[in-house]
Design a protein around this nucleic acid. Structure first.
Lengths: 350, 350
DNA sequence: TTAAAAATGATGGACGTCAATCATTTTCTG
DNA sequence: CAGAAAATGATTGACGTCCATCATTTTTAA
């Protein structure tokens, strides 16, 4: 009736406890036929090692390392916050989380950290950027026996053990759909604003966005304007685009990346009917924008949830369990003025 | 450096291990001053009992009981599915989940089960309905030492230990906002369709919905039509409402409860411009509706996530930990055609 | 002051796994 | 067939807590 122990397995397999132990912990030095018999016994008894006993015995502390981007993006600070708060929560589960920060969007800096890191962790989570060098470093990590989970940004699927994050193509398509809903059958002129052309996430969002928009002939998309995630450029270029449009007013704006404070400034200064505005990620800026009615929708990737999921995945990897759990995949979440989450203090309205 | 053990606590408090043990496990027979000293030692050392060791020692299996509604609502089957699949996942963590099903929306049946249940579980999750008898039964449970978490539907906050689910007022407001977005500044006539007037959740949604709509004078809401979550009534009453509106076409429909297959049938038969349609919960019906363009938005409460969160909360309660974790609260999620999650098989298109 | 009651100390066996050691048996190699 | 190598068995002490028992000390009540 009770769960079988490794002793039961050994008995059933007709070997000693020591041999069964050698098999399950891959200590080596066991004949193939013994391995087989133990595995069969495990199978037929439905043995699963007792996590409590195992963790107690090896005084196991899961050591996870997060490599996070550091920059003045408020999304990054939100991510950092999420990691820190989750770190505290998981302490009781014997999970210890360390964080290394690297300059945002700097593939070489990231690669450097990855290459020079001496392995004292069970698993790593990396906000990856697209770069052969990063990809290579991740693969090298894998070869050194450390699994790497990519967190918000992905690389080549080759080396990494899993990707935890939203599908940015889907996110872009969702933005497109929102703009279509806001226009219904009316014609409109849409301005996509791109953070940086080189960021894979941003390109993917645009990729998802344009086709959805194109389904309606009434909606015309202007060429995407790059603003390098910078507030000042955002301001300047959006104003330019508005005046360039002339009499044909811009009825929708999709801000794909950062620099949204600049966009808010523009929106504030605008006379007459506002365009329908969609941006990404709940930050103090976007939060206030929504509350004040300057922004209509924010597509969020729920960093806290991503972090929690990432840790679950890392733990599963460390335990050698299976970690595919589609039920918990992260989907881009739409926030309107009304379903905003409480964001503790962070989003205080001045 | 390492976490302190109970031995350390005892030493620091100047008592024996046995006494410290008596204190932390509330076995009684300890002088007040000793209790105090142990508590102080715990405090200053930051002692937390090692859950792995504790659970191992007492051969602990977390036994959780879910009381779920059984009916032909597809939402309920989705919930059931979520519980079952989570149950398998958590087996490895020594969590054992049992399920009792009761007729949906039948407060007395639910109360009966609660009242007659003999306590062999650590914690219960209940999809509660609003009823004094249910509330009383939950409070009685608490007095018998079993914490009760309400899951998708809540009761009086008195007796229950926590509520895991969305805020239905917020959900309604979100639906209202979507309809406003779809109309922008154009006038419109909105038909709210109510599952059942007596369901607290549905009333709350309507409560949240109407004020948001009322902010725009251009939008007029018809009186809410109750359809008792029934497909046939839905069909009949919506058709009635449409013809009653006469030349003034209905431009938006908010379906607050069940019976959506009937609504889909109506929408299919409609000539001319479709109304903007918002409904609740991803089910095969709503999923197909979205895919086919008959439904514009679905507000989902993510049952799988709710269940997972509920189990986390129950575990925290059973361990005597703190379980408030705002970062993981469930917010109503908006699904459009593009950000639909994969729903395994369940949502197959015909 | 004494007996009873309460509080404390000391101790040891679980729980199931991990990790190591040493002795013994089996298998392979030349 | 001997000697080396490989495989296996047997055993033991952690890990930290729970739970029980028994002996001893301290406090309380009569």
């Amino acid at each position: 009736m009770n769960r079988p122990t490794l002793h039961d397995v050994a008995r059933a397999a007709g070997v000693s406890y020591a041999t069964a132990d050698r098999v399950v912990n891959a200590r080596g030095g066991v004949a193939d036929k013994s391995i087989l018999r133990v595995q069969q016994a495990i199978e037929s008894l439905g043995y699963e090692r007792d996590i409590f006993a195992a963790n107690l015995s090896r005084k196991r502390v899961y050591r996870f390392l997060f490599i996070l981007p550091k920059g003045d993006h408020s999304f990054f600070s939100a991510l950092r916050l999420a990691v820190d708060s989750e770190a505290v929560l998981r302490l009781a589960d014997r999970v210890r989380i360390d964080v290394i920060e690297v300059p945002a969007l700097d593939s070489d800096a990231l690669a450097e950290v990855l290459e020079n890191h001496d392995d004292d962790c069970d698993c790593m989570a990396v906000v990856a950027t697209e770069s052969p060098r990063v990809a290579a470093a991740i693969t090298a990590m894998r070869e050194r026996g450390i699994a790497v989970v990519t967190l918000v940004g992905d690389t080549e699927p080759e080396g990494r053990a899993a990707y935890v994050g939203i599908d940015n193509v889907v996110a872009g398509a969702t933005a497109g759909r929102l703009l279509r809903i806001a226009h219904r059958d009316r014609p409109g002129l849409i301005l996509p604003v791109l953070g940086s052309l080189s960021a894979r996430d941003h390109r993917q969002r645009l990729e998802g966005f344009l086709p959805v928009l194109a389904e309606t002939p009434a909606l015309r998309a202007l060429p995407a304007v790059p603003v390098n995630d910078r507030r000042d450029l955002m301001r300047e270029r959006v104003l330019d685009a508005i005046s360039a449009a002339g009499g044909d007013p811009i009825t929708g704006i999709y801000s794909i990346g950062g620099g949204n404070r600049g966009l808010i400034e523009v929106l504030e200064s605008l006379q007459g009917p506002r365009p329908f505005v969609v941006m990404h990620d709940i930050t103090p800026t976007s939060y206030r924008g929504l509350m004040r009615g300057l922004v209509d929708a924010v597509i969020d990737q729920k960093p806290a949830q991503e972090v929690a999921l990432a840790i679950d995945v890392m733990k599963a990897i460390a335990d050698g369990r299976d970690w595919s759990d589609p039920a918990r995949q992260i989907t881009p979440t739409i926030y309107l003025k009304d379903n905003l989450p409480d964001i503790g203090g962070q989003g205080d309205i001045k």
